[in-house]
């Protein structure tokens, strides 16, 4: 069962009313991120934490590599500077760390959000990426409260049925 809304305010209103009754939709599809929904849904992301650790390990790894290459593997004199020219390693470390964070976070995002090139989209409502805000309910989950859900949804939005897999 789909609850289809025309704007953000009515969607959020219905979402909060449902939440007060202890009901959450299976999924909400919106054309742009709606923060009340993102905070209200029982999902969370640790992508920022992952990024921090990627950065930490990348920084240590890169600095370690630079020191290994320039001090131990094949030390060379450049204009009388010390082999372990730590301050000038910082620049490369920062930039390469940022690059590592970006790439690794992108792969993490791709894996966790299940988004990758050529993936076939599972579309519930054709216009959810255009101008409709869609809540998806599994009929089986809301058997008891079916009427209540329907009342709240139809207050501002409308109900469309879709037999989904």
């Amino acid at each position: 069962m789909l609850g289809v809304f025309n704007d953000e305010a009515t969607l959020v209103d219905a979402f909060e009313k449902l939440k007060n009754k202890g009901l959450t939709p299976v999924e909400v599809y919106t054309p742009y991120p709606v923060h009340e929904i993102l905070e209200g849904m029982p999902i969370k992301t640790r992508i920022t934490h992952a990024a921090f650790f990627f950065g930490l390990f990348a920084a240590i790894g890169i600095l370690g590599f630079l020191t290994y290459a320039a001090v131990y593997s094949w030390p060379l004199h450049y204009g009388g500077k010390p082999f372990n020219a730590f301050p000038s390693f910082i620049v490369v470390t920062i930039v390469a760390t940022i690059l590592s964070i970006t790439l690794l976070t992108l792969f993490t995002f791709s894996a966790r959000a299940n988004i990758f090139p050529g993936k076939k989209a599972k579309i519930f409502h054709e216009r959810a990426t255009d101008d409709k805000f869609v809540m998806v309910f599994d009929e089986a989950d809301i058997v008891k409260n079916s009427e209540l859900v329907k009342t709240i949804l139809t207050e501002h939005g409308k109900i469309e049925n879709k037999i989904s897999d």
């Binding site: 919106t30 991120p33 988004i115 990758f116």
Partner: peptide, 17 residues
């Protein structure tokens, strides 16, 4: 489009990214 649907799970991680 990488199979994007605009679900809250995607948006949440998208925002994090």
């Amino acid at each position: 489009a990488f199979g994007w649907t605009g679900s809250s799970r995607e948006w949440l991680r998208f925002e994090g990214l």
